[in-house]
Structure formats: structure tokens, C-alpha cells
Computed example of a mutant assay.
Amino acid sequence: MALTFMLDPAVDRPLRDGLLDLWTDVSDAGGAVGFVPPVTREAVRAGLVKHLVAMAEGRSRLLAGFDGDGRVAAAAFLTLNTHPLMTHWLWLYTVMVHPRHQGRGHGRDLLAAAADAARGIEGIEAIRLTCRGGLGLEHFYASCGYKEVGRVPAAIRVAPGDDRDDVIMLLPLG
């Protein structure tokens, strides 16, 4: 079953709770979205609040994917670059597909919808994201058209003695 993607959905309690559940479940399943398992909803809530504040301030936009039951099944945040020399590209943060929906092409669909959304923002020419090395994520993003443009060795410490590269990826939209 395909997901339905919506840019800038109304932020209400069901959406906030759905995003919180999505982020927590993705993290607990080992997803590289800012936490290592196990994680609590309260730990994730602070990250979600930061995204919601950026949205309220007009610095970030939410792309949400909903399943056939209307539940949040995927999400990504498109964040405008505030550096005056870099406003021609945006960041894609916290890219997530719920574990129950993984393996069905929904990640590719989410990235395609994010690219379409970015193309609709005046002046945006590229999407930049970072991903945690050691999980093969850079190969997935490359298969979706992103190119590795940089790597910071051992920049992410997921546990003592377990440092991962921070991989920088870019998708030109032209």
C-alpha cells in the first residue's frame, strides 16, 4: 500500500503524537535519527520540539507520509539554510520510515517527495543531508541520486569505542 505524502500538514496533537511515536519506534529499531536504542518518548520529545519551533518560525517544513489508516508512517524535515551564501540549498533532516513500512520502497518515495517539495521552494537548487556511516545508508541515498561529497571520520560516537563517520550527501535538483 502506498503512502500519501503531505507537505506542511496542520500541526495538531495527533500529528505531534504520530511523529513522536514514529521517531521513537525508528530509533528503537536501530534507525540513525539522532539516538541509539533504547530511547524513551521523553528523550525524543526534545528533538521534535526543536523541529516544531523551527517550523513555527518558518525555517523548516515538514513532509509527512501517512498510511491507509491515516497514521504517520514516514517523515522528513526540509530546513532552509540561514547562511546568506548558502540559501540556494536546504538540509534534509530526520528522514524516517516506520519499521512496519520499511522494505516496500517507501524510503525512496519519501526522498522523491522531498525532492519535489524542495523544487517547489523558490531558489532551492540542491538538498544536503548527513547520515551515519557504518550502516550502509550512504549506499541507499546514492541509489536515490545523492552523491557523497564529504566524510568526517569518527564524528559520531554511538557508544564508547563505537565511532562512526558523518557522511555528507548532496542531491542537485537541476
Results as ranks from 00 to 15, higher is better:
residue 2 A to P: 10
residue 3 L to T: 08
residue 4 T to P: 01
residue 6 M to V: 15
residue 6 M to H: 12
residue 6 M to P: 01
residue 8 D to L: 03
residue 8 D to Q: 14
residue 8 D to Y: 05
residue 10 A to I: 09
residue 11 V to L: 14
residue 12 D to H: 12
residue 12 D to Y: 00
residue 12 D to R: 08
residue 14 P to S: 05
residue 14 P to W: 04
residue 18 G to W: 07
residue 18 G to M: 02
residue 21 D to T: 09
residue 21 D to F: 05
residue 22 L to T: 06
residue 23 W to Q: 08
residue 24 T to C: 05
residue 24 T to P: 02
residue 24 T to G: 02
residue 24 T to A: 05
residue 26 V to Y: 01
residue 30 G to Q: 07
residue 31 G to W: 09
residue 32 A to I: 08
residue 36 V to Y: 07
residue 38 P to W: 08
residue 39 V to R: 10
residue 40 T to K: 15
residue 49 V to K: 14
residue 50 K to D: 12
residue 50 K to V: 12
residue 51 H to S: 12
residue 51 H to F: 09
residue 52 L to Y: 07
residue 52 L to E: 14
residue 53 V to P: 00
residue 58 G to D: 02
residue 61 R to T: 05
residue 61 R to W: 06
residue 61 R to P: 10
residue 62 L to Y: 08
residue 63 L to Q: 07
residue 67 D to Y: 02
residue 71 R to I: 02
residue 72 V to M: 03
residue 77 F to N: 07
residue 77 F to C: 06
residue 79 T to Y: 00
residue 79 T to S: 07
residue 83 H to P: 00
residue 83 H to W: 12
residue 91 W to D: 15
residue 94 T to C: 08
residue 95 V to Q: 13
residue 96 M to F: 08
residue 97 V to D: 10
residue 97 V to C: 10
residue 98 H to A: 15
residue 100 R to C: 05
residue 103 G to S: 12
residue 104 R to E: 08
residue 105 G to D: 08
residue 105 G to R: 11
residue 107 G to P: 02
residue 107 G to N: 00
residue 109 D to F: 00
residue 112 A to E: 03
residue 112 A to L: 11
residue 113 A to K: 05
residue 113 A to L: 01
residue 113 A to R: 11
residue 115 A to K: 02
residue 117 A to Y: 06
residue 117 A to G: 15
residue 117 A to E: 08
residue 118 A to Q: 03
residue 118 A to I: 03
residue 119 R to T: 00
residue 119 R to K: 12
residue 120 G to H: 05
residue 122 E to N: 07
residue 125 E to M: 13
residue 125 E to G: 13
residue 134 G to W: 10
residue 141 Y to W: 10
residue 141 Y to T: 07
residue 143 S to M: 14
residue 152 V to C: 00
residue 152 V to W: 01
residue 153 P to W: 00
residue 153 P to I: 09
residue 154 A to S: 09
residue 161 G to Q: 07
residue 162 D to L: 13
residue 163 D to K: 02
residue 164 R to F: 01
residue 165 D to F: 05
residue 166 D to P: 01
residue 167 V to N: 01
residue 168 I to R: 07
residue 168 I to M: 09
residue 170 L to C: 01
residue 171 L to H: 07
